[in-house]
Write a protein that binds this DNA or RNA. Structure first.
Length: 113
DNA sequence: ACATTGACTAATT
DNA sequence: TAATTAGCCAATG
């Protein structure tokens, strides 16, 4: 994956508002859409997003990106949960994962009219 | 070029 | 509802 993809993912993650969250799959979808809009070949894949995050996720609110179950990366679970609690992100009664139904967020399409 | 791996997902059991 | 399995996409050895 090249830097363009990396930037696209990081840029999107940075736009996630405090107290909300996105799934890897959704991030991948949006990035793919933007990629197509830019006339590039669509790269899709939740795993690629994860790969980018693992490589350059520092510096962005990575804890606002969770898997389809609403659970943050197991590798930094506690850290992520701490951040999420601090931001009052809707969590499940268990407190171990994000309540996607309430916290899920989708970016406004910057439709250039 | 083939096999393995990973901050994933959806379907099964 | 939780654990397993198979599928997926691209990077790496």
């Amino acid at each position: 994956m090249d830097d363009a993809y990396l930037e696209a993912v990081l840029d999107l993650v940075e736009t996630i508002p405090s107290g909300r969250a996105m799934t890897y799959g959704t991030v991948a979808e949006v990035v793919a859409e933007r990629c197509v809009a830019a006339g590039e070949r669509p790269r899709g894949g939740p795993r690629q997003v994860g790969q980018v995050m693992a490589r350059a996720g520092a510096g962005v609110p990575w804890w606002r990106v969770v898997n389809a179950s609403g659970a943050p990366p197991a590798r930094h679970l506690q850290r992520a949960l701490a951040e999420l609690r601090a931001e009052a992100t809707p969590l499940t009664p268990d407190g171990t994962r994000v309540a996607l139904a309430q916290a899920i967020w989708f970016p406004d399409v910057p439709d250039p009219d």
